[in-house]
Design a protein around this nucleic acid. Structure first.
Lengths: 240, 240
DNA sequence: AAGTGGTCTAGACCACGGC
DNA sequence: CCGTGGTCTAGACCACTTC
């Protein structure tokens, strides 16, 4: 039997896509059996190896679970742990309405530690963006972002009071954010931060320092976040 | 050509194993080319699909990287982020000599919040283990572990002052630790903790609450850790 | 053009699980 | 026993990269 069509998407991907769509539409619920390799091969008129490839690939993606001698079943929906999300995305996923006040946007060249974190030479110019974040009118975090001014000076005039920094970067600057290395510790609130967050001086805050990389491994930004510990909880999952 | 031997390990796994060993022995360094599918098929006297399976599987495991039209190459060694490690393992991997002092081991039945974390009924009996951890003679963490007394009462007499709790669990109780969900925040040191850790009262501490599961998804233990923020830094990597 | 990985066939037998 | 996934063959053509 000849190949159905040249220059089109591979058969195993078509089959995969159909199954995914059925799952996403709720036609197959977690635990339900997915058609067997032989069934798929017959229905889609492909060889066993091809049907198998479709299912194996779905398994690799975590969409299904295969049990020898038994069958292939829809996997429990994955909870995404440790995902790199913007503040806006995090709040959205908890259906809270986020707010954010830009305290400062300017170009600086005198915070040398920041330049090191961004892998820039010590006197490079850097965009500094300071924002107070709140939910339901209550401030809970002070976030300071640093980016190379050479690349991102346009941010000085971007509408950051109403749009996510992540979204702006990904759309206007065509950078694909990939991953972040974070350092987490606890630190007492300095007077200004305490005032801004509405907590007593020296109140313990969660401090998170992120270096965020593009998918290609290039440093894009450095973020220093101070979080009210009574309002913010970092949740992570780690594996052995 | 017939199958070489029944009841033995699959050909693709044998081929995989050989390649892995060469890599681990340093015979192939990161970036080096691995033999092509056709090469492997010829040398090991298997079909192309089988040789292919070996390489595809190695790629899934992250050991190699495949580039269409170019070849298969040894991947850069993975740095393990966010790994669930015992204190002993963490210190060992930084070549520091860990110390640990058992402050308390007893069975309790009155901390109801703990029972909830362990998914036990509210009045179940629970082993409570409190340890002060230090490096180079300096205390830096207070860790309290809780485990079901029904399963782990033998820990009351285990030599925990000199052996890792993880190791004991995995060897003596045959539990395979799998993953942990953690909540991280900042909290002021209470008087007793401050005293034990040698810091001022109300000093900000990093608080990590872990629920640790077996590979089968069963809750094994709950750990409450308080870390001196000046000596301990949680490092995580998250992906988008 | 030569070599690589990617897709695919039309079968085969094996190992496992449930009935 | 039957159906499932797991391994495997001996080829084929395609798409891509490098020279």
């Amino acid at each position: 039997m000849p190949v159905k069509s040249r220059n089109s998407i591979p058969a195993y991907q078509r089959i995969q896509g159909k199954i995914r769509k059925i799952i996403e539409a709720g036609g197959l619920r977690p635990g339900d059996a997915v058609p067997s390799e032989r069934e798929l091969a017959r229905v889609h008129n492909v060889s066993l190896m091809t049907a198998r490839h479709a299912l194996a690939s779905l398994e690799k993606q975590g969409a299904v679970e295969r049990r020898r001698g038994v069958g292939t079943f829809v996997a429990a929906p994955k909870i995404h742990f440790n995902k790199l999300m913007s503040y806006t995305e995090q709040m959205g996923s908890r259906s809270l309405i986020p707010g954010s006040k830009v305290l400062l946007v300017k170009i600086i060249d005198d915070e040398h530690e920041v330049n090191a974190r961004l892998a820039l030479s010590p006197n490079s110019r850097v965009v500094k963006l300071e924002r107070l974040r709140h939910v339901s009118g209550e401030p809970f975090a002070l976030e300071t972002c640093y980016l190379s001014a050479a690349q991102f000076s346009g941010l000085l005039t971007a509408p950051l009071h109403r749009e996510s920094l992540f979204a702006t970067l990904e759309r206007d600057y065509n950078v694909e954010l990939g991953y972040a290395d974070e350092e987490v510790d606890a630190t007492p609130a300095d007077p200004r931060t305490a005032e801004l967050l509405g907590v007593p001086k020296r109140e313990p805050l969660l401090r998170i320092r992120q270096v965020i990389y593009s998918t290609k491994g290039v440093v894009i930004l450095y973020v220093l976040g101070l979080y009210r510990s009574d309002r913010h909880n970092l949740v992570i999952r780690r594996f052995r």
